[in-house]
Write a protein that binds this DNA or RNA. Sequence first.
DNA 1: CAGTGTAAAATTGTCTACAATCTCGGATAC
DNA 2: GTATCCGAGATTGTAGACAATTTTACACTG
Lengths: 246, 246
Amino acid sequence: MVGRTGSGSSKSPRRTKAEHGNSLRKAFHEIRELIVHGRLSPGSWIVEADLARHLAMSRTPVRSALHLLQREGYVIEHTNVRKSRMVVAPLTKEDAAELYQVIGHVEGLAGRRTAALPKGRRAEIAVQLRRFNEQLRTIAESGDPRASGIFDIDRSFHRTIIEAGAGPRLTALHKSIEPQAERYWRLYASWIMHDLHPSIAEHEEIIAAIVVGDSVRTEHALQANWENGCIRLAGVIDIFGERGSW
Amino acid sequence: MVGRTGSGSSKSPRRTKAEHGNSLRKAFHEIRELIVHGRLSPGSWIVEADLARHLAMSRTPVRSALHLLQREGYVIEHTNVRKSRMVVAPLTKEDAAELYQVIGHVEGLAGRRTAALPKGRRAEIAVQLRRFNEQLRTIAESGDPRASGIFDIDRSFHRTIIEAGAGPRLTALHKSIEPQAERYWRLYASWIMHDLHPSIAEHEEIIAAIVVGDSVRTEHALQANWENGCIRLAGVIDIFGERGSW
DNA sequence: CAGTGTAAAATTGTCTACAATCTCGGATAC
DNA sequence: GTATCCGAGATTGTAGACAATTTTACACTG
């Protein structure tokens, strides 16, 4: 009978802990956000303890999150035999090329399946896609410098296709890769904005292919959109230089 | 005054720790092996402490490894609000279909780039590929039931193409996805072995496409190989039933 | 003054303790 | 006999301590 807790008083102290079971998730998303938005600059060292302090948690979840981010390519390990220090993945033209090609193929596969959906469903999707594309066009023609808004709309466009055509595995894959494109996007956003019209035209081709239900054409249109995006990006990188690849 | 190191002689504190900096890596690979080989059966619960005991380490690296495995699809979390219990991912026909399609596209992309390599390099690759394929043919015709050997050779075949044509990102992607095909493979290995010849023929088409340097044909041949493999697999799953999808 | 060995600091990798939460069986009331 | 509530054990999530290792600064030697 010793361990008898004073029945009744055991309930109050819970509130301080906010949420007990979400540190890893929070660490993952917050660190990724820091990287994507460039607050942690490409090529810089990462010190677990510093991040833990910044996020007001212990090193354990931070460390786990870093391993996840490493596996997804946001962070790379400076391979020493025993110890491995983490570095924010640099942004290079070569990496962008591969990344964009991979995304193009992942979305291409999703698009292929979207184009194989029943006609009515495809029409619904086309309506949504047209709406997003019109928003893009409006912003592009107004010259409004809300670059981040542009990215969100473009993301919605592509995500619509993924959600329509991809299964759980492909969706997960896309979710893990797509934010990495955002890194490049944000870095050169102001410049990319000047060059929106080609992308909008390519989107229209994608929509047209989906409407008529042509899988191969849809796949190629999506791949082309990303490949051309990569070319446009490469031009900007040539001007501004790479980041963190010293 | 703190750092008095004079009495170094009395230090033989614990067991020689073998390796200090490799527990996470070890945990990841060993647990994945347990899952791939079916020692942890699909759909069964995972208890961190049990695994930790089995691997002779603490829960911390085991836990991290499980999160990595979750993100790669070997393990799924039974979504409760606060806590998440891990379950070995079940093997279903639907999942196999998506998985094989994704692998086919990933390898297809790598193959596209392999076929674009210079002619001399392509010839070298073809020599290796033919050697692997001949080994497969030998085993298939001898009726030797070393199913695991077959898988290793087939894996070498595909890996050769990846290593030749894929960049770091695509290689990493393939490395994380391919062992999941092995799960299905091993489960139905004895059956698949009866059906090797179609796959060998498809391999020959792949080799031929690489030799002539036709990117599109190579990509399609690889996709076809996986898609047909999926169809063959689906037939077996229909007979033996799914695993862990209750 | 350069080179080298070494101690201290910094950092990573792992373990253990503890807190929060969940599960399950058994006691109790009816 | 059945339903419900409660508590002990089991399990997960986090924090902090400790061990191992790398890096850095600095004294000492030639």
